[in-house]
Lab assay of single mutants.
Amino acid sequence: QLNEKPLPEGWEMRFTVDGIPYFVDHNRRTTTYIDPRTGKSALDNGPQIAYVRD
């Protein structure tokens, strides 16, 4: 279940091809599976993935 609260300024939620949510921090140009609103991860110790700018 996804959090309904808005993401912090400069953050975006995207999904992997497998449908796993991850979070893009455009301020720091990093990505993470940890939801910045809750501190909880969509994966157990998930790796960071490459930042992609559209």
Rank of each mutant, 00 (worst) to 15 (best):
G10N: 07
T16H: 05
E12F: 01
M13P: 05
N3V: 01
L2I: 14
R29K: 10
E9G: 07
Q1E: 10
R37G: 03
K5G: 11
R14E: 03
N27E: 08
G39H: 15
P47K: 14
R14V: 04
V17R: 11
R28D: 05
N27L: 08
M13V: 08
D35M: 01
D44M: 09
Y33L: 03
L43M: 15
D54K: 09
T38D: 07
W11K: 04
L43W: 11
T16E: 00
R37W: 03
Y22L: 03
G46K: 13
E4G: 05
L43R: 11
V24Y: 02
E9V: 09
N27M: 14
I49D: 12
R29M: 12
T32D: 02
T30W: 13
F23P: 01
P47H: 13
R14T: 07
W11L: 05
L7P: 02
V52I: 10
R29T: 07
T31Q: 01
G46S: 14
P6M: 12
H26C: 02
P47A: 06
N27S: 11
P6F: 13
D44R: 11
K40T: 15
P6Y: 06
G46P: 07
D18W: 02
D54A: 03
Q1L: 15
V17S: 10
P36W: 00
H26K: 05
R37M: 03
I34C: 06
K40W: 09
R37T: 06
I34G: 05
P36F: 00
P47W: 03
T31F: 02
G10F: 01
P8V: 03
P6S: 14
D35G: 01
R14S: 08
T16N: 08
L43F: 09
E12K: 03
Q1P: 02
T31P: 02
P21K: 12
A42L: 12
G19I: 03
K5V: 11
R28I: 04
Y33S: 04
F23D: 01
G10W: 01
R14Q: 04
R14Y: 05
L7G: 02
V24E: 05
T38L: 06
T30G: 06
R29H: 05
K5I: 12
R53T: 11
R14C: 09
Y22F: 04
V17I: 10
K40V: 14
I49L: 12
K40R: 12
T31H: 09
D35A: 01
R28E: 07
V52R: 13
K5R: 11
S41V: 12
Q48N: 12
P8I: 01
V52A: 14
L7F: 09
L2P: 05
T38M: 05
Q48C: 07
F15Y: 08
D44C: 07
G39I: 10
R28F: 11
T31W: 02
T31C: 08
L7N: 02
T32E: 00
D18K: 05
D18M: 06
D18F: 04
D25P: 00
V24A: 04
N27I: 08
Q1G: 03
G19W: 03
R37D: 03
T32H: 01
I20D: 15
F15D: 07
K40F: 10
W11C: 06
G19Y: 14
L43E: 10
A42G: 13
S41P: 13
V52P: 14
